[in-house]
Design a protein around this nucleic acid. Structure first.
Lengths: 342, 342
DNA sequence: CTGAAAGCGCTTACAG
DNA sequence: CTGAAAGCGCTTACAG
């Protein structure tokens, strides 16, 4: 009822400003969007009116028109998984730095959910980052045909991708274990649909072959601490004296369970994780891990999207897909080392 | 050039479907949106055409019209801070469960950034959750006048809020310390703009008074591990034998620094954190902490927003703001206990 | 430099 | 039950 001068809550449009400033709505749009195309006088008029009414352009209307929504989507397989935290952070800050908003969604490790979610958010975004996607290559390419897509931790033909180069980190890890007297190294794998899990295993096998060690694959039920605990028995039974794990939480679960079974770490068994997540140095012993530059992966994926966005002019050359490879490295902490003969 | 039958990448609108189905665009809209208002025959026609063309309604256009965007915003002070992870997760899964998309943004602990971000994303959302907001009460109320706002970890007049009830957890902690022989308890505070930090300190002081202990406030430079390390010297100098910390990372930083200075924990000094973050049980000794049900806070905040959304009919009674109070509790682990006389 | 008009993709009274 | 029209808030050629 009360006519407050700073009436909050009322939707103010360019028409309101036009009325106050005494110009046409299209002029308001110009004054605000491309100030150089109006006279200094009207610009001032419009700006003052806009300030007075506390005007804020409706991004939805703008998006409907020129197709640019100003938001980028990020879909992760599991929002609970701390491996993604740095990636989310990297993407988020890169987005903010470019005046974009980040939309976060998750697929719950399900390929079909992932596709649904992607299709659902695609119209409201300018592009989508898929972190460790679980869906098929053709599905990803189809999404990429509609709007720019960048995948992290996977390589898909003709789609921008950011993949850690696992080789250096794994080679370091194997040398480290070999020099510690380990001869048989287990790999606790990630989800079947995880492309990067396959690459890590391949790389481990190659490194073991090269150094004359034995590598063996042990599947896990889930890439969680619980998954690591459940695999402990099989790991011990396998005769391996060291394990590389698909990720750090898996490694921490494994280590905890082994310790509960009185296995001394690292004297009797070495555990190495992947990703260097927050808290991986809190354990006793602190976890040795192969670090992937996830924050940088998020940032890089975002810039790939940015680069793929249709520029103002025409985009004549459909540039080849961007391929960023980020080097991994071994961080030696207390959970790995020399094997003491029983 | 090639006319693929499953042409991906082309924007398909209700007009395309109308053409294929041989009906008016408005009928397409009805058939898809309120199927009960069209004949079974046309519904089938439209549905088939939509399926064939792989149609997906543009949420932007819809939002522009009826104001419902189908997305909820979540603004956190610091995306790096693991205290928020569970909250983000709770809000995200609740949103997904309701067919909504979650937009994540951060304010970098700055009140002005926070306001800007909130204003920026408000038009594209149906409501906003503010986690530990730093801006002023009137600013929050103004946002709330435009679209529903729910705040977490703060109480703002006439705005929906979810606040942990710090009292039980802190009372437990003080009893725990008192029975361990501690007489002087320090509180490492959070950011000045943190409402909840103030509540925690108030509650600690009251509990200490009640049990005849001395409480003292020690300010910190940042709610991070580094902030905790920096405060260690002052904590020791103060003569306190136990510290309650604004959050777990602060506590972990403090503990690490004390241990580096050869202070035995918990024999010579007890450390208690807040929030029970991921990894807080990885430390040695594991961190005693006061748990706030953050995941539930995220979920609850989302349902408050949902409840505040203008329903289809009129919303006659402007319901009083929702106020959820979630109980905290002490989780005793190894970093706190009986004080051994030097 | 500025105004009038058309249109982005959808929904919703309004007629019929 | 269905069609034709108007409109959500903005932008952008097109005239002048």
């Amino acid at each position: 009822m009360a006519k407050s001068s700073s009436a909050a809550g009322t939707k103010v449009t360019i028409y309101d400003i036009a009325k106050v400033a005494g110009v046409n709505p299209s002029t308001v749009s110009r004054a605000l969007g491309k100030p150089e195309r109006v006279s200094a006088k009207t610009r001032k008029l419009v700006e003052e009116a806009a300030a007075e009414l506390n005007f804020r352009a409706n991004p939805l209307a703008r998006a409907l028109l020129n197709g640019r929504t100003g938001t980028i989507g990020l879909i992760v397989a599991d929002i609970t998984n701390p491996s993604y935290f740095d990636m989310i952070r990297g993407a988020q800050s890169a987005a903010a730095a470019n005046g974009l908003t980040l939309v976060l969604a998750e697929s719950a490790e399900s390929a079909s959910t992932e596709l649904m979610v992607a299709q659902r958010i695609q119209p409201s975004t300018d592009g989508i980052i898929l972190a460790s996607p679980r869906m098929s290559d053709p599905e990803i390419r189809a999404l990429n045909n509609t709007k720019p897509v960048a995948v992290i931790n996977r390589s898909v033909e003709s789609v921008d991708s950011v993949v850690p180069d696992v080789e250096p980190g794994i080679a370091e890890a194997v040398r480290h274990l070999a020099s510690g007297g380990h001869r048989k190294i287990a790999f606790l794998s990630g989800p079947d649909a995880s492309w990067i899990s396959g690459r890590r295993w391949d790389s481990l096998r190659a490194a073991c072959e090269w150094t004359g060690r034995e590598a063996l694959l042990i599947p896990t039920t889930a890439p969680t601490a619980e998954g690591g605990r459940r695999a402990a028995r099989e790991v011990v039974a396998s005769g391996a004296t060291a394990a590389l794990c698909y990720n750090d939480v898996l490694a921490i679960g494994l280590m905890r369970e082994l310790q509960a079974a009185q296995v001394k770490i690292p004297d009797e068994f070495s555990v190495i994780g992947f990703d260097n997540i927050f808290g991986s140095d809190f354990t006793t012993p602190a976890l040795t891990t192969i670090a992937s530059p996830f924050s940088e992966a998020g940032t890089t994926a975002l810039s790939l999207i940015l680069a793929a966005l249709p520029s103002d002019g025409s985009d004549p050359l459909p540039a080849p897909p961007g391929r960023a490879a980020l080097p991994t490295s071994l961080i030696v902490r207390g959970s790995s080392g020399r094997l003491l003969a029983g």
